[in-house]
Design a protein around this nucleic acid. Structure first.
Length: 487
RNA sequence: GGUCGGAUGGCCGAGAGGUUAGGCAGAGGUCUGCAAAACCUUUUACAGCGGUUCAAAUCCGCUUCCGACCUCCA
């Protein structure tokens, strides 16, 4: 029935999507480490998976979507050195680590809600799954793929690589990885191999986040929380695992390793990775100073921004690029998206008012097929939108009598746009005002204006129009009467 | 330096051997008391040089430039 193909990073190919236990689908996406505000690039990744979630549900799958929040164990360096990011922030602000995470989690959810992302089915915290992580670490030790040194448990990458393709996901050569990192082996006397990573870390006396374990007081490593939580909620093997592309070489590679060291198989069948958001061709990142927060984008309160852009415009802007391509941000580009979004929404509002005829000159089933073909091709939202814009042209043509539509086709057209635009793409109209008083007053004012216009009293009608313009209301005289909108 | 991925018209961005992607901007038009808005039509393209092919933006090779990862990042 569906012909959905998903690009799998594991095989570097698009593959037909076949869930393990239809109609159920298990999907795990690596969420943020909330020691600070999530930035716009982070949001793009979660938006991409929101589309996956929505489309799979639309196709009739029962999706369990797990997206974690990492609140412990993520150190400042992937080499398992430096301070825990959350703990550091807590120390600096003299707050409980959980206070830090709670503060940024609330903010994170508020932003995602504005962008109309559906909440995941489960949003587990790493700190809430310490026993699971300890248990998994024990299992890896029992299976001989890890070793303990002074209360820290290290994953033995080189040993593991002999029995499992460790570099499968990143598509790199193990020798080269070992070579490339040799020089920073110094100062790390505990781990045996340069690629080895911590499953459990001994807590230094001043470390605020600490739990008892078979190896003494400590805290879990960065990657193990995702393995433990995905296994707990989705099982030893599930359908989709996703995250940003930058997680491929370290985080996801190690996740697969840990999981395979326990269960002798890759946790997920389809690995999906989203590309980066760039600004002037460079990856958005805090260190480059080219990142801004979603809240700043909405308000326009940032040096890089000419003005604010509404959340739905931002969503539309991101959907105009495929999730595996980089997307370059600029004021010009997002302003173009804003106009396009408004055009799409205006056409959508027109559908219920379209006249019907005995025959159709528009091939609605073909349009429908084209849109689904795009979505089935690895969630190709830009092409799906392009097809919907083809439909927009027809909607206007029908509106103006240049094309015709049967009642049945009109119903199908309405259904297609409702389902695709609202349910799958998650766009929604941004009402300027639903204040009934304003609506009533405007109706009255425009009635008066049209009366004086019919008497050719243009001085008065222009006075009304100009005065409204000063108040930020644009009057639009059309064939079918006069409408208005806020500017 | 190593590995991987890119270079598409003024901008953003799809496509991936033969047929117009789409959006925005520009130009022309329709409508209009005027204006705006809206709608219609429409110009400009596949980094460079070779090769394969009846046919290449699309495949292969080289060159140039850019990015990502290898060091915190979705």
């Amino acid at each position: 029935m569906h012909d959905l193909h998903i690009y799998n990073t594991l095989t570097r190919r698009k593959e037909p999507f076949q869930p393990l236990n239809p109609p159920h689908v298990g999907m795990y996406v690596c969420g943020p480490t909330l020691y600070t505000h999530a930035h716009l690039g982070n949001c793009r990744t979660f938006l991409s998976f929101d589309i996956v979630f929505r489309y799979l549900r639309h196709l009739g799958y029962k999706v369990r979507y797990v997206r974690n929040i990492t609140d412990v164990g993520h150190l400042e360096s992937d080499a398992d050195e430096g301070e825990d990011k959350v703990a550091k922030r807590a120390r600096l602000e003299k707050l409980e680590p959980m206070e830090i995470v709670q503060f940024y989690a609330v903010d994170f959810h508020r932003i995602l809600d504005k962008l109309n992302l559906l909440p995941p089915s489960i949003e587990p915290l790493a700190s809430g799954h310490i026993p699971e992580q300890i248990e998994m670490t024990q299992r890896i030790l029992q299976n001989g793929m890890a070793y303990e040194v002074n209360g820290t448990v290290w994953f033995d990458v080189e040993k593991f690589a002999k029995v499992f393709p460790y570099t499968q996901l990143s598509n790199r050569q193990l020798d080269e990885l070992l070579d490339g990192t040799r020089d920073n082996l110094e100062g790390q006397d505990e781990k045996r191999g340069r690629l080895d990573f911590a499953l459990w870390k001994r807590a230094t006396p001043g470390h605020i986040m600490r739990w008892n374990s078979p190896w003494g007081v400590g805290f879990p490593g960065w990657h193990i929380e995702c393995s433990a939580m995905s296994t707990k909620y989705l099982g030893e093997e599930f359908d989709i695992h996703g995250g940003g592309m930058d997680l491929i070489p370290t985080h996801h590679t190690n996740e697969i390793a840990q999981h395979a060291a326990c269960y002798h198989k890759n946790p997920a069948r389809y690995w999906m990775h989203t590309n980066m958001l760039t600004v002037n061709g460079q990856k958005m990142s805090k260190s480059l100073g080219n990142s801004f927060l979603p809240a700043e984008l909405f308000s326009g309160n940032h040096p890089l921004l000419e003005r604010g852009y509404s959340p739905m415009v931002v969503r539309f802007f991101m959907l105009q690029a495929h999730y595996r391509s980089t997307l370059d941000f600029s004021n010009f580009a997002i302003q173009a998206a804003e106009k396009g979004f408004q055009r799409l929404m205006a056409a959508l509002e027109l559908i219920p008012h379209l006249p019907v005829s005995d025959t159709s000159t528009v091939d609605v089933p073909a349009l429908r097929q084209a849109v689904y073909r795009a979505m089935n091709d690895d969630f190709n939202t830009p092409v799906a939108l392009a097809e919907l814009f083809e439909g927009v042209r027809h909607i206007y043509a029908i509106h103006e009598g240049r094309d015709t539509l049967t009642a049945a086709d009109k119903e199908q057209l309405q259904k297609l746009y409702n389902e695709m635009v609202f349910d799958v793409l998650g766009l929604k109209p941004e009402k300027n005002s639903d204040d009934t008083l304003v609506t009533g007053l405007m109706q009255l004012i425009l009635d008066i204006r049209s009366e004086v216009r019919s008497k050719k009293d243009y001085a008065t009608s222009d006075k009304i129009r100009d005065a409204l313009a000063k108040l930020g209301i644009q009057v639009k005289d059309g064939k079918e009467g006069t409408t208005w909108s806020r500017t």
